[in-house]
């Protein structure tokens, strides 16, 4: 079958998709976007977390056909997504939308477009606050859990710019990490939240 959907703001068309393929497989093997990871393919580890019309989901549990006509953001588009959210809302967190509600509305998600993929300028990679915080805090070791955690943490900070430790733990409880013992991940999310707070 053919699947048309939008990934990181770019319309994509995947051909010859077998009906049993997951969104994760299509992203990784058909669209050249292996950033979403395949740690369990059982919906248990969160390493393949992407935004689907703004909602964080495990891409391994979404059938490719289900994303027809929908909007997907992966870790590859996270920096642009966060930047445009900040610019658009005039608010680094994206939580001060016009309707007064936290989070990215479906309409906002559909109007978002990445510029990253066409850029061949090779300038220093621009990172989202949460990406930079993961590097700075030492939250990355093997890095296999990192893409999913970044997408989940970014979404949490969008909803909740001032999370308590318990809030962070609850929001990230679907993302397994085997290397870090999670302490540096906690540090990274706290750091990203603090930096966002300063930026406002």
């Amino acid at each position: 079958m053919r699947v048309n959907f939008t990934v990181n703001g770019r319309p994509q068309e995947a051909d010859d998709v077998w009906e049993g393929e997951s969104l994760l497989y299509v992203l990784r093997e058909r669209l050249g976007l292996p950033g979403s990871k395949n740690a369990c393919e059982q919906g248990e580890c969160g390493s393949c977390t992407v935004r689907l019309d703004g909602e964080p989901v495990c891409a391994c549990l979404v059938a490719a056909g289900q994303v027809e006509g929908r909007e997907v953001v992966t870790v590859e588009g996270l920096a642009d997504f966060a930047k445009q959210r900040a610019e658009r809302g005039g608010c680094a967190t994206g939580a001060c939308g016009t309707d007064g509600k936290a989070g990215t509305s479906l309409q906002d998600a559909q109007h978002w477009a990445a510029k990253g993929q066409d850029s061949q300028t090779g300038e220093g990679t621009e990172l989202s606050p949460v990406q930079q915080a993961f590097i700075d805090a030492g939250a990355v070791q093997c890095g296999f859990c990192t893409p999913g955690l970044l997408v989940a943490a970014d979404e949490m900070l969008e909803r909740n710019p001032n999370p308590t430790d318990a809030d962070i733990r609850e929001a990230l409880s679907g993302n397994l990490c085997r290397c870090t013992g999670y302490e540096k991940i906690m540090d990274a999310v706290r750091l990203a939240a603090a930096r966002q707070g300063e930026a406002v």
Binding site: R28, E29, G32, L33, P34, G35, S36, K37, N38, T74, V75, E76, L78, A79, T125, L127, Q131, Q132, F134, I135, V140, G143, F144, T146, P147, L150
Partner: peptide
Amino acid sequence: GTLKVTGEFAYSSDMW
């Protein structure tokens, strides 16, 4: 670190 947070770091399962 940058490659790992942008999804560009090529793990063995990412080879194509």
